[in-house]
Amino acid sequence: MQLSGNTIFITGATSGIGRGLAEAFHRLGNQVIISGRRKALLDEVTAANPGMQGIELDITSPESIKSVSEWLMSTHPTLNVLINNAGLMPFDDPAAEIDDAVSLTILTTNLLGPIRMTSALIEHLKAQPSAAIIHNTSVVAFMPLAGNAVYSASKAALHSYTQTQRFALRDTRVKVIEIAPPWVNTDLIYKSDDPRAMPLEAYIEDTMRQLGTDEEEIIVDGIRALRDNPGTGEYALIARFNQSLVDNPIPVG
């Protein structure tokens, strides 16, 4: 994708990877609009990055998504990049009773949030000269964690959705990109400074480098072997299967 000259909206961008991407794109001269639930944090980030804008968004609320998307299209008609970054990662135990309310919140935030946000903006993005949708999944989409079972499942589902959406938009000007971070030293759970976690600055630098290419799936070298577990040719297979259904539709009725 092109790394400059964009109008970019990023969800969940007041800390961690979201803030890192927002500031990296901002430094390249893009118009960046960030969102989050807490106005104080939005104000803190935008004050540190003059020219960046912020808007409050509850990604679990369809009404909030509708309101923010309408504001974006009206106030920023050149909006051409959506980065679905907002997410949460509570611990759980699939061998025990799992709190249903927590599971619903994870799935509403991590899966329905990106689906709803993209749906609200998709026709606007399709009308731009060039556009991109970037979904932030995770290495756990390919290598799930037993201690974060619902989170892992939500990211695997978003990975699946990303690939089908890429296929569905193949004949449009909208590029669909997946970034799948490794363990990055952020406060998604808590900032541990564990030496096994990739430093945030290094992750952002490598991700921005790869975003500047034609790659559709952004994987840092440290997790490539884990991604290769299901096979990096996975999308080609999915594309061929979907194309076969386009060419030979399943009879209805």
Rank of each mutant, 00 (worst) to 15 (best):
S15W: 08
A22F: 06
E23M: 11
E23A: 04
H26A: 11
N30C: 11
Q31R: 15
I34S: 09
S35F: 00
K39Q: 15
K39D: 07
L41R: 15
L42G: 13
A48R: 14
G51V: 03
D58T: 11
P62D: 00
P62Q: 05
I65W: 10
S74R: 15
T75V: 03
H76V: 05
V81W: 04
V81A: 05
P90R: 12
A95M: 14
A96P: 14
E97Q: 14
I98G: 02
I106N: 04
L107E: 06
T109E: 02
I115C: 08
S119I: 00
H124N: 02
H124D: 01
K126T: 00
A127H: 09
A127Y: 09
S130K: 13
A131G: 06
V139N: 07
A141S: 15
A141R: 02
A146C: 02
S152P: 12
A153D: 00
T162L: 02
Q163V: 06
Q165T: 15
K175D: 02
I177K: 10
E178M: 12
I179S: 08
I179R: 09
P182W: 03
N185C: 09
T186P: 12
D187E: 12
Y190N: 12
Y190P: 00
Y190M: 13
Y190I: 10
R196Y: 01
M198W: 04
P199R: 01
Y203L: 04
E205T: 15
M208D: 03
R209L: 09
L211V: 04
E217T: 14
G222D: 11
P230K: 07
P230D: 01
L237S: 10
F241V: 14
F241G: 08
S244P: 09
V246T: 13
D247L: 05
D247I: 06
P251E: 02
